[in-house]
Amino acid sequence: MISSIFNLQRAALLLAVMLTGLASGCGSAPARQPLAIEQAKKADLEAHRALRDGDLLRARELFRKAMLLQQALDNIPASTMAAINLSSISHRLADDDTALRLLDEILADRSAQMPSDLRIAAAFRKGIILADHGRLAEAGVALQQATRDCNRQCADNTGMTNLAARLALLNGDFPAALAQAKAVISQGADKAELANAQRIAATAESALEQNESALDRYHVALALDKELGLSSRIAEDLQGIARVLEKLGRKPEAEIYAQRAQAVTAAAQLLPGSSVKKTLP
């Protein structure tokens, strides 16, 4: 009997040791890295955190810090990523000169260490910014570069097709724009690109006097943009609906949608750090 008590005691002791080990293993923080590497990672993490909180100015400062720290460590992939992010934030803050300069620097670097997916991302983003400025030919060149390097294999593929559709729309080639937007819709994409494709298709259809279908597409885009919580896009969708309704002779409804669009734009512009864009096709 006593020996069984001793065995029980040993088992309990073993269990306690195992539990202690398990608990300490679960609770331990990851091993520390060299200071400069930790600082760079922390700057990047804090930049994303600031972006999530909507503090674009702080995000810009932190992405710049992360970029410089990574450059100082000759970490080309990480510094390129930080530069692309800095460019995106600069674009949101309407500092497109800086945004384009950063992207051009990336695209000018032909070293083997530059990851191709980042070069594609840089070219794609350059195309988006140039399209915003109406520099359609240059945007087309940037998009071609991105598409060539991507070869339909990269994550931004649907976005590129949408950008091509947008450029076609801006060039007045409505059938081409509609075809490309429909291709994105049929292929499937994430909500943001799906909403963009619906909006482009709706605009093209409206231009081609297919107003009923355009109205439906605008409503689909509106629902998606509301899910995404994108004020500027919601305003665009509402304006598009108002335009189509007016074409269909439903003026009272059109006025209501136009007023809603104005209210959304006005409210969004009053928000701090707002960068509500004008209506884009």
Binding site: L45, H48, I84, S88, H91
Partner: peptide
Amino acid sequence: TSWPLKNMIQVPEQGLVKMDSHD
């Protein structure tokens, strides 16, 4: 970064900041 908090705290997404064709 330690258990159990790491399962409760949402770490912001890192990598490339999202930018779609309409941004």
